[in-house]
């Protein structure tokens, strides 16, 4: 069933300031290339295209001129209690001690898509066809992420390969790989965001900025009441934006 919350000494988390996101898509573009997602010619079919990071457009549902919009970048929420992990029949996806990152291992995945069905955030993508790059473009593939064949499920990994690099760098410099400085490991979307709307760090480490950010009264998470206990936090000073993070009954 729904499993229990796991505690990790390191809990990597992202804090996204919606009030700063202009919806430009730089995070998505960064993610695509960092993680070797193929360029998709028919990317306008959003139900078929792969974008580990996706920017949603939020509206307050009112008419002009009271209408308001906001953009919500959505990486994998790295749930503390992931709906997708317990359902996997072959342990291709796990929530283990790795900083609380929900792993997804492609050579183990059989492509049953049960996790795709279980995830309410739509962060899981299936390889419908073998990936194809325009001639020569495979030379620009990132060496840090493997290319997935068709038929397996993939998702945002919080660029965990950058963590392994950061740990290696710490080891080489005689530092503690399990106590990285703030900023030693950040995801590509966080690094490249032109607005600085995204922050990343160890939620449990008081030396990391995000540790404080998640305590903001404006911080909230998506679908909290389902008990997914996500590690991605959003911040907005706008109440209607916060309200769109979850479902509420009229009486609430």
């Amino acid at each position: 069933m729904s499993g229990q919350k796991m505690e990790f000494p390191i809990t990597w988390g992202m804090v996204i300031d919606i009030d700063k996101c202009t919806g430009c898509g730089a995070c998505m573009a960064s993610c695509q290339t960092e993680n070797n997602v193929e360029p998709q010619r028919e990317a306008s079919n959003k139900l078929r295209s792969t974008s580990w990071m996706t920017v949603y457009e939020l509206t307050n549902g009112k008419s002009f001129p009271d209408h308001d919009i906001a953009y919500l970048p959505r990486p994998c929420q790295q749930c503390g209690n992931p709906p997708c992990v317990s359902v996997c029949p072959v342990i291709a996806t796990e929530k283990n001690e790795n900083g609380g990152i929900v792993s997804q291992v492609y050579p183990r995945c059989i492509g049953c898509r049960y996790c795709v069905a279980a995830c309410p955030y739509h962060v899981r993508y299936f390889g419908w066809f073998d990936p194809v790059w325009p001639e020569g473009m495979q030379k620009t593939l990132s060496p840090l992420t493997s290319v997935r064949p068709r038929g397996v499920v993939e998702k945002c990994t919080f660029c965990h390969h950058r963590w392994t690099l950061a740990k290696d760098a710490a080891r080489a410099n005689g530092k503690d790989p399990d106590n990285l400085d703030d900023g030693a490991y950040v995801t590509t979307c966080v690094q490249n965001c032109p607005s600085g709307a995204l922050a990343f760090g160890d939620l449990k480490n008081p030396k990391h900025k995000v540790h404080e950010l998640i305590k903001s009264p404006y911080a909230y998470r998506l679908l909290e009441r389902l008990g997914t206990d996500t590690q991605v936090y959003y911040i907005s000073r706008r109440e209607w934006v916060r309200k769109l993070g979850d479902n509420y009954l009229k009486s609430e």
Binding site: G3, S86, V87, C88, P89, V90, I91, A92, R108, C109, I110, G111, C112, R113, Y114, F126, G127, P149, R150, G151, V152, V153
Partner: peptide, 19 residues
């Protein structure tokens, strides 16, 4: 998606999964 790997269901079973 990967029928050749279907046997993983036996070899690497996740006992928590209904599947």
């Amino acid at each position: 998606g990967q029928p050749i790997r279907s046997w993983f269901g036996y070899w690497h079973p996740n006992v928590h999964s209904m599947l």
